[in-house]
Design a protein around this nucleic acid. Sequence first.
DNA 1: ATACACCTTACACCTACATGTAAGGTCAAG
DNA 2: CTTGACCTTACATGTAGGTGTAAGGTGTAT
Lengths: 141, 141
Amino acid sequence: MTTENAERLTIGEVAQAAGVAATTLRYYEREGLLSPTDRSRAGYRLYDDGAVERLEFVRAAQAVGFTLDDIRALLELNGDSPCKEVQALIERRLTEVDEKLADLTRVRSTLADALQRCRKSKKGCAVVADLKRKRGKRRSK
Amino acid sequence: MTTENAERLTIGEVAQAAGVAATTLRYYEREGLLSPTDRSRAGYRLYDDGAVERLEFVRAAQAVGFTLDDIRALLELNGDSPCKEVQALIERRLTEVDEKLADLTRVRSTLADALQRCRKSKKGCAVVADLKRKRGKRRSK
DNA sequence: ATACACCTTACACCTACATGTAAGGTCAAG
DNA sequence: CTTGACCTTACATGTAGGTGTAAGGTGTAT
């Protein structure tokens, strides 16, 4: 597939562009996360370039802890959904994201503190002690 | 186990305090994340209350996407490690955390934007369109 | 002294998220 | 017109992070 059609990408091209394996794209299709817009005569999957953006959104959301199920739910939202439900879902997700941000910030400051002390002391650095002393509210999903 | 010894907690007590299953604690022990400080005559695991803090750190770190392996590495750091290595590890983790913060912030603003539009429009809300338009740099771990 | 909730080990099983493998079809280049 | 990189499907396997189950011991309340 070297014919630069400038609108229809094969699975390999999309995969390369987004930095995932082609097999992963087929998997995402089965899971309803991203379908090719078309097929070639031979049955090859053909994607438009929006697919790459969408895929990048999926990966970013995944990197911060959303499951594929969560992400599918977000991606499935469209003009046909009753606005109430859409709003509620988005609000729930926002709350989750904010909790994650709080956790992450906490972990970050633990690490930063540990690094500080580590730099200060000529000798070994008791990071474990630091970690053990750190506190925070519960989160379990 | 109802005897309040005020320093030695059984697995069930720790589990309850931290909001995880006792089986999970045994699993963490096998994985080297958290060991009881002692055993009773009968072989019951006995933890000091630092265990709860430690466990909370584990869960918070996990909630924001660290693997148990990552977390073990952090927790294993101690005064015996050469400071150079310790620093390097912490620095690497800090970088990861900052990348996660960036991703998370991006996802957050996508959601917030979507919610805005959703509130504005009387009718359906094209969230998918929003998501597709959002961009960001690669992250795949 | 017996019920009952808790603990022990060992091992099988589960879900999410892929990845690999086999068996075959497609297509542009040499 | 064949080579070799790509694509197809279907199915098996792998890893992380647990959960469940069986078979048995513990400890305290009644």
